[in-house]
Design a protein around this nucleic acid. Structure first.
Lengths: 215, 215
DNA sequence: ACCTGAACACCGTTCAAGT
DNA sequence: ACCTGAACACCGTTCAAGT
């Protein structure tokens, strides 16, 4: 059985699968190689090093984001759709949350994404600095929310209620923290819906940005 | 020269210094031990493992945050002061940004911090769910902003303009991304002040939360 | 009770050698 | 041109042995 020739794309695809399954810390050159039926050193013919491999992975993640359309009539709708897409994408690739904004060598999908966001805001009438404000604020919220959401341990597929319960179990005595008692009991009782929570903050921010723009 | 006996506090202090200097990836049990003039295995008498050590570090970071006071007359001022403090603290400990919300064993300073935030909002008249919304939104923004800000490479003390320039240098051709050309040229010309940018988003969110509460 | 030497199962990366 | 074996300088963690 002849095996397919190694390419950068095949290396990245295998690495993405590993990272999605076990997180960044379970991603090693040696494991990627094993997954491809090859020795670790062979990978260096297709990626410069691990940093370069991660750069490639992050751009694959950027490529999954649904882009806003510059010039579309409803800028809030465009920014909203894109924000929801970023959250979904980062839920599929939780290991990527902390890496999206830190690439020193942004890939084409990364550039395309930032260009589309700025373009959509500028064409909607935002002045340059106002567009920077809006884009920076929205990204901070989206990435920060994804960070909260992604912070479950990697090997488990627990839901939020279970995680809250496990955290509470690790606390020896809650009596000095009365307001947290309320949080723990309410969360256990009524649960917590990330999608709803995300939409609340997103619409609050979009509304405030609109008011600030037209004011 | 007799050396001071090892304690959990001394282990954590040495580890904090290492992480602040070189980031998480330069923090190893062996290096912490070397810094303390001891063998790596000795640390295990004072921390359960590396995870436990990181838990301890994160709680040291939480302990540096200036807490809001439940019942204080100006809740916006309290939340603002605390948000600014979190940003400052995370600028001193950039390695911590991604770890603050992911601890499965929250330490006492962590609990105190969340308790104070919820307490301040509840005493200001926020209904329970509204307080959860507000706290979740504010933390998402703060951590997300800190994530953007922390994403410079660890070994350098570059400012934002230099980083933007370096990123641009890594892009072969910007012509397909006209809106990014504007960003790169404006950033190089007029710079970018993180503190101002942070305050803009923070005040926009606090204002919108106030309107949503009294509406 | 606390510290350590040796060992195990891992890492990323290099380099010269193979095909 | 691409793949690999051996090697180097690292990891976290265990366990039995020292004091």
């Amino acid at each position: 059985m002849r095996r397919a020739p190694l390419t950068r794309e095949r290396v990245l695809a295998a690495a993405l699968e590993l990272a999605d399954a076990g997180g960044l810390e379970s991603l090693s050159m040696r494991k990627v190689a094993t997954a491809l039926g090859v020795e670790a050193m062979s990978l260096y013919n297709h990626v410069a090093n691990k940093e370069d491999l991660v750069d490639g992975l992050v751009d694959l993640v950027f490529a999954e984001i649904d882009l806003p359309v510059p010039g579309a009539p409803d800028w809030k709708g465009e920014m909203r759709r894109r924000a929801v897409s970023v959250r979904e994408v980062l839920n599929r690739h939780r290991w990527a949350v902390g890496l999206m904004e830190s690439r020193m060598r942004p890939g084409p999908a990364n550039l395309r994404s930032h260009n589309a966001v700025m373009g959509c805001l500028r064409e909607a009438g935002f002045a340059f600095r106002a567009a920077v404000h809006a884009s920076s604020l929205l990204d901070a919220y989206i990435y920060g929310f994804a960070l909260q959401e992604a912070s479950l341990p990697f090997d488990t597929a627990q839901d939020h209620a279970e995680v809250v319960e496990a955290k509470q179990a690790a606390v020896p005595d809650l009596t000095p923290f009365p307001y947290l008692v309320e949080v723990f009991t309410e969360m256990a009782r009524a649960g917590y819906d990330y999608a709803t929570e995300f939409a609340f903050g997103l619409d609050l921010i979009l509304g405030a940005l609109e008011r600030a723009q037209t004011k």
